[in-house]
Amino acid sequence: MKRKNKRLTFVMIALIFVGSAVALVLTAFEENIVFFFSPTDLESKKTPTKQRFRLGGLVAKASVKKQGGGITQFQVIDATNSVLVRYKGILPDLFREGQGVVVEGRLNGSVFQADEVLAKHDENYMPPEVAEALKKSGQWQGINTTGSKAQ
């Protein structure tokens, strides 16, 4: 093979490979991006009916109810709105009333059917999206996110 042809072969293989990777990424992005909403966003914006999305806010005090069969129901709230969430499974160890939470799943009528409740390693940690959503809705109470200077 001539030098020029050889180089062309390499470039072609690389282009085909990278091209298919880009195509994969684009299709996957279209189908698999998960948006984040606060309860207020759900009221004001057009709500996705079929798509999976994440919902974040605070777990309302005294709203957690066990329904038997491993199903838990609770309210996720921000300053103005609340959404009823139903989840089947074992809640993460750091799930607590009055704490920030992010759940992932689909909206089924007016109930959010969660198939994932995100757990955190650290009880002081507030997911950035939740913190911002709470700030926006004026419910930010300066929950200590730094943790390090808490003493």
Binding site: V25, I33, F36, F37, E129, E132
Partner: peptide, 21 residues
Amino acid sequence: GDKVSVGPPFFNSVFIPLMIP
């Protein structure tokens, strides 16, 4: 823009086909 997250479905549908060849 919006708050989004990219989860396992994205990575599985991109990463796995790339690994096959």
